[in-house]
Simulated assay, not measured.
Amino acid sequence: MTPQLTDNYMVTIAERLKSAYARIALAAKKHHRNEGDVCLLAVSKTKPADFILAAYQQGHREFGESYVQEAVDKITQLANYSDIVWHFIGPIQSNKTAAVAEHFDWVQSVDREKIAKRLNRQRPTDKAPLKVLIQVNISLEETKSGCQPAQLDTLAECIHHCPNLELRGLMAIPAKTDDKQQQIQYFEQLRACFDRLKAQYPQIDTVSMGMSGDVEAAIAAGSTMVRIGTDIFGQRS
């Protein structure tokens, strides 16, 4: 465990978390949505376990991590807090799938059948099925992870037939842009993929899109989960 956080920093995280909730509520109200339908995922990658505890003490339970070994260390440190829900949101290398399958509740970045099958095989039998989101490369960037939209049906069918995985929806990290209309366009494309997939798999209920810079556009397009890190925990070290 890292050194005890100062009271001032704990207050800062509490205030930032409150502000993030308020931002979601305001965007939901503006776009005629129920704020309770949008989950806040606090992205805690690169931040110590004490930062997570500061948010936990404010009632927050959903945390996102991108680096496997760092995340496993924190999950181990916080093992007594059994109601924390851990999401893996980073790219998945084949040699890291066992650790992801063993320690996380959700994985949001499955983008190919090989990874899905490894996670299914390596998920411990005494744990509930691993909740899975397919990462979609919605802006078709050559350097970005995610399956192509045209590959979505095949990958979804593969996951659906994995008994230790539970397909719950889609995730995307579109190309960065300050153009609000372009942001909304990317998100609407993902939402359309989600709606089409839901017609085949009624259990899916999550479309994870939107980060600190584009929360409003994501909520306008129908996001059910937004991923916010810096605005809660401060700049990454």
Rank of each mutant, 00 (worst) to 15 (best):
T12I: 06
R227H: 09
S208E: 10
A98H: 15
T206F: 09
Q57N: 14
G36N: 15
K176S: 15
W86L: 01
Y81I: 05
T2K: 06
S237Y: 03
I219G: 00
G64D: 02
I115C: 06
T125R: 13
N164H: 13
R112F: 00
E15D: 14
R121V: 01
K74G: 01
R168F: 10
Y81N: 10
H32F: 11
H87I: 10
D50N: 12
A172R: 03
Q93C: 08
T76L: 13
S212N: 08
K30R: 15
G64T: 06
V107F: 02
Q151K: 14
V136N: 10
E35P: 12
T76G: 07
Y81L: 13
R121I: 05
E142M: 09
K127N: 05
Q189S: 12
E216D: 15
G234C: 03
G222P: 14
D73R: 13
T177Y: 14
T177Q: 09
P163M: 05
G64K: 00
V100A: 05
D37F: 10
Y67I: 03
S237T: 13
F104H: 09
D195T: 14
G234W: 09
Q200E: 15
V215T: 15
A116S: 12
N137K: 08
E65F: 08
Q189A: 15
A79F: 00
V107L: 04
P48V: 01
G213S: 11
L130A: 08
T143F: 02
C147I: 07
A221E: 12
T97D: 14
R112K: 14
E166V: 06
K74M: 05
A199V: 11
A14T: 01
N137T: 08
E102A: 15
I204Y: 03
P149W: 03
A128G: 01
D83T: 07
N80Y: 13
L170G: 01
E216T: 13
R227Y: 12
S66A: 15
V11W: 03
Q151L: 06
V226C: 09
A27S: 15
N80G: 14
T125I: 14
Q69D: 12
L197I: 11
R227D: 11
G64V: 06
L152M: 10
D178H: 09
V68Y: 00
L40M: 11
E102H: 10
R23T: 04
P163S: 08
S237C: 11
A218E: 11
S139G: 10
I24Q: 08
S19G: 01
I75K: 01
L53Q: 04
D178W: 05
R33H: 09
A27Q: 02
C147G: 05
S109K: 03
C162E: 07
D153R: 14
T46S: 03
S66G: 15
Q185W: 02
A116I: 08
K198L: 10
Q69L: 08
R191Y: 13
L17C: 06
L133M: 12
P3G: 02
L41W: 04
C39D: 11
Y186K: 02
A42V: 05
A220K: 15
P163G: 06
Y56H: 04
A98D: 12
I232F: 04
F63E: 00
T125F: 12
D50L: 02
Q77H: 09
I232W: 03
H31W: 15
L190Q: 06
L140E: 13
A55Y: 01
Q235T: 12
E113S: 10
D105G: 08
T206W: 11
I204G: 03
T154K: 14
I13K: 07
I24F: 07
I134V: 12
